[in-house]
Write a protein that binds this DNA or RNA. Structure first.
Lengths: 128, 128
DNA sequence: TGTTCATATGAGCACTTGTTCATGTATTTA
DNA sequence: TAAATACATGAACAAGTGCTCATATGAACA
């Protein structure tokens, strides 16, 4: 492949070749990164965490996480684009909920990693 | 609680109270966000993905993901700080590997979410 | 129809992120 | 000890993010 593009002398050629053969494409890595990026903000984490318990409208979410309606609406757009949440309309009110159960698992897996270093994380894993 | 801080009129009070009682603190939400933020970059995703297959040194990683040694080193620091990777020294060379098996699961869970909309993701889930 | 309310959206701005480039550090080897 | 190698780090800068504020949309109701 393009070993010549590498600037270093220390390459283990077989290892590099083996892993390169299985590597994600740039676009694939970007998609995965975008998925995690969606959960890479404390307010969005709080939104997902809230919706794990029950569906909520925009201003309920704003009240729960302590942000403005507008800020929450902006974040919800991102969560919608990444298909992490869905909504149903009832008159003027939009009720948001998680798009599927994988989101739930994804957040729990994050908590599981944190529980290695922080005690509080283990507590949440018991109750959700 | 601090319902008076909310700017809206549409609050479902019981729902907000119920969820508020279980809500993550700001610090806790930040820790969770930081965990996901660590995987929110395509080059870091590629690094983790590489290390799922085998341990690699810094310049191997640079060759595999197509970035400079320096860029990779900067990213590895972040992955180290968040305890996603560990390393062992052998002479001048540092061999990096995943810190534990939860990282593996975390990335797979991301792939599982993507596989809802992208076919390629399902293929990776079969082989890793 | 006009008003109100719940939510969405665009512009603008402070802050953050990821890279490059130059330099520093630690280990091996001459 | 001096030079070379593998990696780390700091500064600096372009690009991206998340908020606020002002405005738009769309549904209900008088």
């Amino acid at each position: 492949m393009q070993f010549d593009r590498c600037e270093s002398q220390c390459i283990h050629e077989e290892a590099v070749a083996a892993v390169s053969g299985k590597m994600l494409s740039g676009e694939e890595a970007q998609s995965l990164a975008d998925t995690f990026k969606t959960l890479a903000d404390p307010n969005r984490v709080k939104i997902i965490f809230s919706l794990m318990h029950q569906e909520l409208c925009v201003c309920d979410l704003a009240a729960v996480i302590g942000a403005s309606d507008s800020a929450v609406s902006h974040q919800l757009r991102m969560l919608r684009n990444q298909k992490l949440v869905k909504f149903r309309r009832e008159g003027k009110i939009l009720y948001y909920s998680l798009a599927d159960e994988h989101i739930d698992t994804l957040l729990k897996q994050g908590l599981k990693h944190i529980s290695h270093s922080k005690e509080w994380a283990a507590r949440f894993l018991e109750f959700i």
